[in-house]
Amino acid sequence: CHSECLGNCSQPDDPTKCVACRNFYLDGRCVETCPPPYYHFQDWRCVNFSFCQDLHHKCKNSRRQGCHQYVIHNNKCIPECPSGYTMNSSNLLCTPCLGPCPKVCHLLEGEKTIDSVTSAQELRGCTVINGSLIINIRGGNNLAAELEANLGLIEEISGYLKIRRSYALVSLSFFRKLRLIRGETLEIGNYSFYALDNQNLRQLWDWSKHNLTITQGKLFFHYNPKLCLSEIHKMEEVSGTKGRQERNDIALKTNGDQASCENELLKFSYIRTSFDKILLRWEPYWPPDFRDLLGFMLFYKEAPYQNVTEFDGQDACGSNSWTVVDIDPPLRSNDPKSQNHPGWLMRGLKPWTQYAIFVKTLVTFSDERRTYGAKSDIIYVQTDATNPSVPLDPISVSNSSSQIILKWKPPSDPNGNITHYLVFWERQAEDSELFELDYCLKGLKLPSRTWSPPFESEDSQKHNQSEYEDSAGECCSCPKTDSQILKELEESSFRKTFEDYLHNVVFVPRKT
Results as ranks from 00 to 15, higher is better:
residue 176 R to P: 07
residue 317 C to V: 06
residue 124 R to H: 15
residue 393 D to M: 13
residue 295 G to A: 15
residue 269 S to M: 07
residue 259 A to K: 13
residue 377 D to W: 09
residue 349 L to G: 01
residue 154 I to R: 00
residue 386 T to Q: 04
residue 364 T to A: 15
residue 157 I to S: 00
residue 271 I to S: 06
residue 234 K to S: 10
residue 169 L to R: 00
residue 257 D to V: 13
residue 273 T to H: 11
residue 305 Y to K: 03
residue 124 R to I: 14
residue 139 G to S: 15
residue 246 E to L: 08
residue 174 F to C: 12
residue 253 K to Q: 12
residue 281 R to S: 14
residue 358 F to V: 07
residue 340 N to S: 08
residue 286 W to K: 08
residue 204 L to I: 10
residue 356 A to R: 02
residue 307 N to V: 12
residue 239 S to M: 15
residue 403 Q to C: 11
residue 156 E to K: 08
residue 243 G to S: 06
residue 181 I to G: 00
residue 122 E to P: 05
residue 252 L to R: 10
residue 242 K to L: 14
residue 394 P to W: 15
residue 115 D to W: 01
residue 338 S to I: 05
residue 203 Q to H: 03
residue 239 S to K: 05
residue 159 G to T: 01
residue 264 E to V: 02
residue 353 T to I: 14
residue 326 D to G: 06
residue 126 C to H: 00
residue 190 N to H: 10
residue 211 N to G: 07
residue 174 F to V: 10
residue 228 C to V: 06
residue 362 L to R: 06
residue 180 L to Y: 09
residue 324 V to M: 09
residue 146 E to D: 07
residue 239 S to P: 01
residue 137 I to K: 05
residue 248 N to R: 14
residue 313 G to F: 03
residue 335 D to E: 15
residue 175 F to P: 00
residue 297 M to D: 06
residue 269 S to F: 00
residue 237 E to R: 07
residue 142 N to P: 12
residue 126 C to R: 00
residue 406 L to P: 00
residue 255 N to C: 11
residue 292 D to R: 05
residue 103 K to I: 14
residue 322 W to F: 10
residue 344 W to V: 05
residue 134 I to D: 14
residue 297 M to K: 12
residue 258 Q to R: 09
residue 204 L to S: 05
residue 177 K to G: 06
residue 234 K to Q: 12
residue 320 N to S: 06
residue 307 N to Y: 03
residue 209 K to R: 12
residue 301 K to H: 08
residue 209 K to T: 13
residue 248 N to M: 12
residue 147 L to Q: 02
residue 117 V to T: 03
residue 330 P to R: 11
residue 191 Y to I: 14
residue 212 L to D: 00
residue 108 L to A: 13
residue 112 K to P: 02
residue 280 L to S: 01
residue 339 Q to S: 09
residue 204 L to R: 00
residue 138 R to H: 14
residue 372 Y to Q: 06
residue 208 S to H: 06
residue 201 L to C: 03
residue 134 I to S: 12
residue 248 N to Y: 11
